[in-house]
């Protein structure tokens, strides 16, 4: 996978999300929004290996997955702003997106059965598609996760479950909520899992590529645990984390890590293109 292509998507998500926060504080967005700032390498690393007709199911923190998969910033921003040009005509808003084979919902864990059902449909219709569902560490408290893992394993469904462990369920650190380990949860259901602590999009992409190939070829579920960190607060609420902790994690910024792989001129060129696109989209969406 080409680092400059991956960098462009990471930068696009970062720039878009920062713009979303800005527009929010200016009063152009209502409700809430859960930004993906800090976790971009996960969405980009995994989704860059998917076919365009694969199923991607995501959660409340879904903008990054959407941009990595569908890339339509204008339709996304319009959706967040409740405008009719939005991916769901403004009905869904930030947490409830649908575009082609991309679906999100705001209920923790409830998206797993949808993803498993899509995987079942792909297998039933012999289309060669797989389903990928992104959940967070906080979602591991929901019972329906385990109902679905059991079924996906037993029925050999082409389902990749990506757990983005950003260490916090809203404000509650994982140490207070999670017994045992995440990987053993998959192991208990006979599902192979890979755990990666990386902010390097190339490393994530390479791991995801072999896993996705395996899911497609074997038609069996797989778990990918990505230990990660978000730099922004959970949503629009206050951030209860120790600022020193957040600051210390900034040395693991996937954006900067990817920049080290590129020439200065490449970075400038990509940033220029993306900045122009985001500015244009914001103006268009504000007028829509």
């Amino acid at each position: 996978m080409n680092a400059s292509i991956l960098y462009k998507d990471i930068y696009k998500i970062r720039t878009f999300e920062e713009k979303v926060l800005e527009l929010f504080s200016l009063g152009h967005l209502r409700g809430t929004t859960h930004t993906y700032i800090g976790q971009e390498a996960n969405a980009v690393g995994v989704i860059s290996n998917l076919n365009s007709n694969d199923f991607v199911v995501s959660n409340h923190r879904c903008h990054g997955h959407y941009i990595a998969f569908k890339k339509n910033l204008y339709a996304l921003l319009c959706e967040l702003m409740g405008k009719s040009d939005g991916v769901c005509g403004g009905r869904g808003g930030s947490q409830h997106l649908c575009d082609g084979t991309f679906y999100t919902n705001g209920i923790q864990g409830g998206i797993l059965p949808l993803a498993a059902g899509l995987a079942y449909g792909a297998k039933f219709n012999q289309t060669g598609q797989i389903a990928v569902v992104f959940i967070g560490d906080g979602t591991l408290g929901e019972g329906v996760v385990y109902e679905t893992l059991n079924i996906a394993s037993k029925w050999e469904l082409p389902l990749l479950v990506v757990v983005e462990n950003n260490q916090y369920a809203q404000s509650t650190p994982i140490q207070l909520t999670l017994a045992g380990t995440i990987s053993k949860r998959f192991e208990a259901f006979g599902i192979n899992a890979t755990e990666l602590s990386s902010f390097d999009v190339l490393e994530i992409s390479n791991a995801a590529k072999s896993i996705i190939d395996r899911v497609r070829e074997s038609s069996k579920p797989y778990g990918l645990i990505l230990n990660t960190y978000r730099f922004a607060s959970h949503s629009k609420s206050s951030d209860g984390r120790d600022p020193a902790e957040v600051e210390s994690m900034r040395k693991h910024d996937c954006l900067q890590i990817t920049e080290r792989l590129l020439q200065e001129s490449q970075i400038e060129s990509i940033q220029g293109i993306v900045n122009d696109e985001v500015e244009k989209v914001v103006l268009q969406a504000l007028e829509a």
Partner: peptide, 21 residues
């Protein structure tokens, strides 16, 4: 037959239906 998992089996039906089943 399914496991005793009403939430999962009801939920999966939506994905199947979206695949024209």
């Amino acid at each position: 037959n399914t496991p005793i998992s009403e939430a999962a089996i009801i939920g999966m039906s939506a994905g199947m239906a979206m695949c024209k089943m």
